[in-house]
Amino acid sequence: MNQETAVRNDRDTTSHLPNNQIKVSARKVQVYYGDTHAIKDVDVDIEDRNVTAFIGPSGCGKSTFLRCINRMNDTIPIARVEGQILIDDEDIYDKRIDPVQLRAKVGMVFQKPNPFPKSIYDNVAYGPKIHGLAKNKSELNDIVEKSLRRAALWNEVKDRLQLPGTGLSGGQQQRLCIARAIATEPEILLMDEPCSALDPIATDQVEELIRELKGNYSVVIVTHSMQQAHRVSQKTAFFHLGNLVEYDDTETIFKNPKDERTESYITGRIG
């Protein structure tokens, strides 16, 4: 039954944004941490210019799966990934793929804001510098300004770009991290519980930002909060014990879940 629900893909979602292309397509993905089988047989198609939310109880594997999409799991020595993940029809676990190049295309924002111990400017300029996106100083300045504007932070920090990024408030730090991620011009933006360390007001600002970012990126967000998934996403995937239980339009998942586990979770009986 798992298989059955998991295989169901966006062909069902005729009602919503019909012209969206598939950006990421995962088939039979398995992840092992040493002997633990953390992700089992996950098949999912993620659309471009849309927000996809991964929800599920703690330890269900949603973050692990997210980290597969830009191969961040490579940094954990005991982690092993099997199966296929295609981005723009290219298998990112192909031997010829350089994870460094991949991560420039698939940006990531982490659970806790993690600005570098550098100035705000240098934080945002870091990605463009290492990827050589700016020919000269003024281009770099433009990229920094543009990224900070897109992250809705420019007006708050434009007068103190040379101050350390660690001096900002929690919400500002997280938006700085988002600006840092989009400065490298990624096509996909992965967000691992980006609001879990933030207060409600900062959460509001970041959610607003996510809704705006959807116009340009394929955004995948892992969240603990069902309300948040409901507020920001168009598609929602429900993970449970390493399985992708159900994947559908957000409205459908929340109003009319097909799997009883999904329903139990939505109504607060498991989690």
Binding site: I87, D88, E90, I92, D94, R96, I97, D98, V100, Q101, L102, K105, H131, G132, K146, R149, R150, A152, W154, N155, E185, E187, E212, G215, N216, Y217
Partner: peptide, 27 residues
Amino acid sequence: MTDAPATIADASASRSKGSLLEKDART
């Protein structure tokens, strides 16, 4: 200038990246 308008044009411009299977010189 507000924060929003700059976005769309830039994003589409950045869509012209090459295949990930080929390493560029910089990489």
